[in-house]
């Protein structure tokens, strides 16, 4: 059977890992390649690099980091952040990324996902969605000021809130820019356009370690026919188990991504997986050698 995945994520800037990441001895915590090696030894199921580099120069540095990583570890690597065009996607795949994720560019250029997947196939293109819950104050939803998108794509605009219903709005630019796009409708539209997987981040939960946004996850997972990676808020193995649980209260996700709980030595991928197996979540069992 297909197993659920645990995915550590690194933020990378100008070729270096950002955030005060702490690691055990002799790991250069700033070098993405070293950190990828560490997670490879822990038998992570995939690793994700999120590039936050703004400069053009930095993009070339990233390609080098991706190439060195692909030559150093024998595990799947997803790269996202600042991917603007089909050419960017191709360059990253050729450098050694196994999957490439797009976010803002998919909003600003609605044809990008369809064009890219027609060329490279859908399996290697991930659509990243950053979303926030829209507050239900009992009134009519006031559409937020439009962000990068001129108009939300047909059928994906946020509908007025019905009391008791939840909605989530797609954001860009690190969650600062609301778009007026409904996250569930957007996920459905992009899956139809050919996206192979969705990386769904709750901007309300990101960095909080209080658990994933399960209602949002469930709404997206149940609406799309492609795999979904849960992101934002994962603070423990129990949180991941909830996100991956296929039951009525679970998140129904196929993979759980987390950053800080692994980076700060709070736990290892091996420890998390052993706990998930105890909790009845089917993950790839860590070998005796896994940290």
């Amino acid at each position: 059977m297909l197993l659920k995945r645990i995915i550590p994520c690194l933020d990378v800037n100008e070729g270096r890992v950002v955030k005060g990441v702490q690691y055990v001895d002799h790991v250069d915590a700033g070098d993405p390649v070293e950190v990828a090696r560490l997670y490879d030894a822990q038998e992570a199921d995939e690793i994700t690099f999120l590039d936050i580099t703004a400069s053009h120069e930095g993009r070339r540095i990233l390609l080098d980091v991706v190439a060195r990583t692909a030559e150093s570890v024998f595990m799947p690597l997803t790269v996202g952040g600042g991917v603007r065009s089909l050419e960017d996607v191709r360059n990253l795949l050729n450098a050694g990324a196994d999957k490439v994720s797009v976010m803002t560019a998919a909003v600003t250029d609605p044809d990008l996902v369809a064009d890219a997947t027609a060329r490279i196939g859908s399996a290697n293109l991930v659509l990243a969605i950053d979303a926030r819950a829209v507050s239900d104050d009992g009134g009519v939803l006031v559409p937020s000021e439009r962000g990068a998108a001129a108009e939300p794509p047909a059928g994906a605009a946020l509908a007025p809130l019905v009391p008791g219903e939840s909605r989530w709005e797609v954001c860009t630019h690190g969650g600062r820019q609301p778009t007026g796009i409904d996250a569930v409708a957007w996920a459905v539209a992009m899956a139809e356009a050919g996206a192979g997987e969705i990386l769904l981040t709750s901007m309300d939960r990101d960095g909080t370690r209080v658990g994933y946004d399960l209602p949002m996850l469930r709404a997206v997972c149940d609406a799309v026919p492609i795999p979904v990676i849960a992101s934002g808020g994962g603070g423990s193995a129990e949180d991941m188990a909830a996100a991956l649980d296929d039951g009525a209260e679970g998140g129904h996700a196929q993979a759980a991504l987390a950053a800080s709980i692994f980076h700060f030595k709070q736990t290892t991928v091996g420890e998390v997986k052993r706990r998930l197996l105890e909790l009845g979540i089917p993950v790839r069992p860590p070998s005796d050698a896994a940290a």
């Binding site: 859908s122 192979g196 997987e197 026919p225 492609i226 196929q254 993979a255």
Partner: peptide
């Protein structure tokens, strides 16, 4: 296919670790 042998929806692509 979009559905498995038992008629349940199948997520495509097939991504991840399988035995």
């Amino acid at each position: 296919p979009a559905r498995d042998a038992a008629g349940a929806p199948l997520r495509v692509p097939h991504i991840g670790w399988n035995q």
